[in-house]
Design a protein around this nucleic acid. Structure first.
Lengths: 326, 326
DNA sequence: TTGTATGCGTTATCAC
DNA sequence: GTGATAACGCATACAA
């Protein structure tokens, strides 16, 4: 590994001049040529640490998500990395797996100047650990007025889902969620759904179980059995995410119900398992790429001490699939 | 941000002593206490650049994959990140999107000491750009004897797929692949498949179109139409990845064929779109987590100048789903 | 326009 | 066991 000194010696100039060439500061064309030649000959690469020690920038952003092994976060991570790369930033990926100790480790990293900023989707209460000196963008979750966040318009999305079920003729609808005490995305979807139903005097049910995986699963099936399979009380279902929609579809079709003839289902997210995949159900699509873009723009703005709007709410869109009578 | 100097002053010791405490080098218990107190009081975090400048280690590994937005690579990335984190390494993620310029940028990064090592799944010819001074592990692809690689036993997997189709009673089978000139994973699956068929005198067909997305798609459908829909020449299909298996399933069911009654299908990979998802078809499962583990172990061994076996071949397993008569 | 010198925060090598 | 100090490679202010 050659250093700037060696380059300087070979080019017959001083280290200062070499540094100037590297950083694109005006230099006589001839010297510039000589330096560039020497750089090439020596296969020189600036040492990132030495530079970082001076300028305190890594051009690296950390993305903290529950897990990248999931169509939604996978797509999000994909787009965020792409936008960051476009802006010459690298992305460190952290799968927090919902563990807030892991998340904290990354905030510490940020303090060590290992990363210039953080983009995070978190459901834990990290508020007290966030020094506001760290450029941080939150996705889908409101913390406080100091932390900018970008999110889909979940409230409108929930309302839109309710409206769609209404439009396609459902008489009695229900919301299916996995419970959350935080004021986060899914909460707002529920709120929007309820809001529409009350405004339009639709009768609705809420299933929002907070149990862990197995408990939730069991309770959900009991609920569906009672309200859909045995009594047909419900003919329209809004699942708070596509994942849950798939679960519901699985269960009710296995139990003899036809979709959309007997019961219509709409999800939320618009997930595709890869870029070439297709959306499989009627759903409310989140503008994932746009979320990625705004998050990246936001964190870079913060890094550069520019003003950032505290809240970015992105519009969602109905995708008409075959799980409702469109 | 406080520095080691400030800590030293507050603790009434020298910077050298503080450094010792930080790096767990023997120090009198009393001084250690004093230093630790000062560290806490000042909320001190070592600056990673300064340290890096000295020791030339980032504890960061780059993972280069085509795209994380895909169940297979998503799962792989998830596990790799987890194992790296376990070993106190951070992971920089790069979605190369098959673009080799992007890949090269990351090799340059490695040269700049930005990352200690690289784990890569690549289908481009990066050989000439790889200085063997960079700790590098290749997944699924053999380059040369200097670059260690870890991979599923794709050859055996291909043979196993053929054997399974044979076992469940298929008379005439076919391989469906997306062509590849490189000696990579899918190639070996094909070889294993062919090998079994020839050894056992099974009649087989090969569809291994190299066209781009749309061309491939069109040709595949023409092939299926001719061999499966119209003539029923083929009653057993081995798709080189689960993705293609899904495409095949989609097309043939839409055209009136029943699976597995009319035609049996086996895929390769064993993908699940998330940790809680289930495998949907009969397939040859790759030990993705094991691949991740071995890659991480490998790259860390290389970083520490330890010996690494040049080839790690991991066993695959048949998963019996509903797309073959198991 | 170019060269010189200083310092970034840490680790490591010496003395003590 | 501890303290002083050189060195890591670079950017930059300032001098020339």
């Amino acid at each position: 590994m050659s250093t700037i000194k060696e380059v300087a010696k070979r080019a017959g100039v001083s280290v200062g001049t070499v540094s100037k060439v590297i950083n694109n500061i005006a230099v006589k064309p001839k010297t510039k040529q000589a330096v560039e030649l020497a750089i090439k000959e020596l296969n020189y690469e600036p040492n990132i640490y030495a530079r970082g020690l001076k300028v305190n920038r890594t051009h690296t952003v950390a993305l903290i998500i529950p897990t990248v092994w999931n169509p939604f976060y996978g797509e999000l991570a994909f787009h965020i990395e792409r936008y960051l790369r476009e802006k010459q930033y690298k992305m460190i990926l952290c799968n927090s797996e919902g563990d807030y100790v892991t998340e904290l480790a990354y905030f510490t990293m940020a303090k060590q100047n290992q990363v210039d900023g953080i983009i995070t989707v978190t459901y834990s209460d990290i508020e007290s650990y966030i020094s506001n000196s760290i450029p941080l963008i939150s996705i889908d979750r409101f913390f406080n007025d100091n932390i900018p966040y970008v999110s889909s318009d979940n409230f409108s999305g929930g309302a839109l889902a309710a409206k769609h079920l209404d439009d396609v003729g459902c008489q009695s609808v229900c919301f299916i969620g996995h419970g959350s005490k935080k004021d986060n995305a899914t909460r707002n979807r529920r709120k929007g759904f309820v809001d529409y139903c009350e405004r339009h005097q639709k009768s609705y049910l809420i299933f929002d179980d907070q149990g862990h995986h197995e408990t939730f699963q069991r309770n959900l099936e009991l609920f569906l059995k009672k309200e859909v399979i045995e009594t047909s009380t419900i003919d329209g279902i809004f699942a708070v995410t596509d994942d849950y929609a798939f679960q519901v579809i699985d269960y009710v079709t296995k139990n003899g119900k036809r979709i959309p003839e007997d019961v219509q289902i709409i999800g939320f997210d618009g997930i595709k398992s890869s870029a070439t995949d297709e959306i499989k159900i009627t759903t409310i699509c989140q503008p994932i790429e746009e979320i990625a873009k705004m998050s990246v723009n936001g964190v870079i703005a913060l890094i550069n001490k520019r003003e950032v709007s505290h809240e970015v709410l992105l519009p969602v869109q109905l995708f008409q699939g075959k799980t409702t009578k469109g």
